[in-house]
Amino acid sequence: MDSYGVIFINKIKGLGFNGFVSILHLVYALWLVSTALRVLANVHVVPWYVMDIIFISSGILLLIGISSLVMFFNFVKSAQIQRILASSNIVLTLAFFWYLSQILISGESQITVFDKPFNSYGFGIISLIIFTTILAVPNIMAFFSKPIEEKNKRFIAAVVLAFIVSLTSLGVYYTYLGNQREVLLIEEMPGDAGYRLYGLDQNVIDTSSFGPFEYQYFLDSNSGTTGHPITAGAYEAIQFLQGEESGSVLGWWDYELDIKASGKEPVIAYASEEIKWSVGRPSELYDTFESNEKVMDVSRFFTATSEETASDIAGKYGARYVYISRDR
């Protein structure tokens, strides 16, 4: 008597190539749809750019997943339509790769390739190549399968409807979260880059990927910045600087947003290309870097052992203020 294992293997062998590809599509569909929905269920509304990354990337995975599900059920029963679906999945996979390759994190973290979506799609180039290659496999195989040719127009309409409903739901959810973000808005800061201060609700504080933290606010902007949580003390400092006379401010580039939100100009606002490895999401996101000389000078300002040397460097850049953060 055959064991269940042997019976299972024989059943898979009996499915043939088409059956195997079909099962593969089911597995991928379940994986991708569940991943996308789980990520979307835990979106934080700030920073805005991470919310956008999550929606665009999850949306693509969701569409590939639904398309894979359609191919598994072979609803349409048309080899031609199957190939069109497989082609569109490959195009979506390439779009996924292209989009995330613009906003790679600077290094591969220890988490697995499959966990990257749960970490704000924080791929490095190697994990992104692996992930998208895995995504493409069943769709490439679908080109070689030949489903039964019995075109059923009703199911074509159902497939189109499924895509429309999915995209519309995503749009509605995105709008809903955007409105939630507006509710959290406390202050719009001066300046033309949309500096906005949000009060963090307890849920964000408790479930942040950084762990529960003491930041009460989130400072965001629609300019080339990554946005970050700030403490009540930092908010107080921003308000203080707003009341001071104009002048540029020396600080590490991490605090450019705090300084700009106070209406002052930071000496450096970004890292240099030479130290982009030290940046979580590189400023490649906006393809903006400071000159390395400037960043080195600011580093030498802080590491100097004499006030005179530091003062000379500050003078070189016409800096009037120095901004020091104790909490980050």
Partner: peptide, 25 residues
């Protein structure tokens, strides 16, 4: 010196709380 809120010769401390210090040349 900055982080400890020290009094300095070339820089004057104009703001201090538990999180941030601001100096002016």
């Amino acid at each position: 010196m900055f982080n400890t809120g020290a009094e300095m010769e070339y820089f004057e401390k104009i703001f201090e709380n538990e999180d941030v210090l601001i100096y002016e040349l």
